[in-house]
């Protein structure tokens, strides 16, 4: 299939990009890596009048150390993120989960910012950023804005970004030592979307769980934190049984829908099973 017609803008700086968005209004779409957008354009499920291509805004590709956090530019490609030493050192969960996204060719083009702004509940990275308490940085003509991940993913394919707002990137707090992480993705084939994904981190000290993060992919119109699981594990000794018991709460507060690949009930079941497995792997037991 063939995309409908659109005008094309190719800013080279963040300032130009913000202006381009501001001038184009609600009919504009930002083109990041295009790996989700291009199929939508080709199937004519998206018919923007203007496409603002960020490909040449070099500063958006930067990944840098900002002291107590790592900043990943919105246009950092999946490929870049997987390889990046800062990400691997301070946010290994992102590197591991990103390696499960699509396939190598798609990861060469697809970007972290694009995946987050697309806000597909079946996408792997929103839950990961949510688990890591990432902070998304947006910029409009009115200035910059920080949006915690918990407030960013609002609904199915809907983020907190305003139409004229540009996602600059995401700040990931460094989590220090003692953590183990894992992203558990469950899908029918390598190419298929996650039926359920579990992003988690566990920090242990003296055998006990001091801190724990669990976020779920595709368990509702937006990624969700499994707070009940996190609470249930605080102070517990990390054993398989403890993880299993806590994971029994994984589906609480979720609102999954059924589709071709799994019913809501099955997703709830999977959330429990996979959460236990993800925690066990993260804890390295």
């Amino acid at each position: 299939m063939i995309p409908g017609s659109f005008d094309y803008l190719r800013p080279t700086t963040i300032g130009e990009a913000v202006s381009a968005l501001a001038e184009s209004g609600e009919d504009a779409k930002v083109l990041a890596g295009g790996q989700s957008l291009m199929p939508l354009l080709r199937l004519r499920l998206a018919l923007p009048e203007v496409l603002v291509d960020l490909d040449h805004v070099a500063e958006l590709r930067e990944i840098r150390d900002t002291g107590d956090s790592v900043f990943i530019g919105a246009m950092a490609t999946h490929h870049q993120v997987i390889k990046d030493p800062l990400v691997r050192a301070h946010a290994p969960l992102i590197a591991q989960a990103t390696a499960t996204v699509a396939d190598p060719a798609v990861r060469h083009r697809g970007t972290l910012g694009g995946s987050l702004a697309h806000a597909d509940p079946a996408g792997d990275l929103p839950a990961v950023i949510l688990a890591l308490d990432g902070v998304l940085i947006a910029q409009s003509a009115h200035g910059p804005r920080e949006i915690p991940a918990a407030d960013f993913f609002e609904d199915y394919l809907t983020s907190a970004l305003e139409p004229a707002e540009l996602l600059l990137g995401v700040r990931i707090p460094k989590l220090g030592t003692g953590w183990g992480f894992h992203y558990e993705k469950f899908h029918r084939t390598a190419q298929a979307w996650a039926i359920v994904g579990v992003a988690c981190g566990v920090r242990r000290a003296n055998g006990a769980i001091e801190e724990c993060r669990v976020a779920l992919t595709n368990m509702g119109p937006a990624p969700v934190r499994a707070h009940e699981v996190e609470r249930a594990l605080l102070g517990r000794v990390a054993t398989q049984n403890a993880f299993k018991a806590a994971a029994a709460h994984a589906a609480e507060g979720t609102a999954p829908t059924g589709d071709l690949h799994g019913s809501a009930e099955y997703r709830e079941h999977l959330a429990r099973v996979l959460t236990a497995r993800a925690l066990t792997t993260a804890a390295g037991i």
Partner: peptide, 9 residues
Amino acid sequence: MSVKSCSVL
């Protein structure tokens, strides 16, 4: 680097 030329303008 590999890309899918149907998904690049």
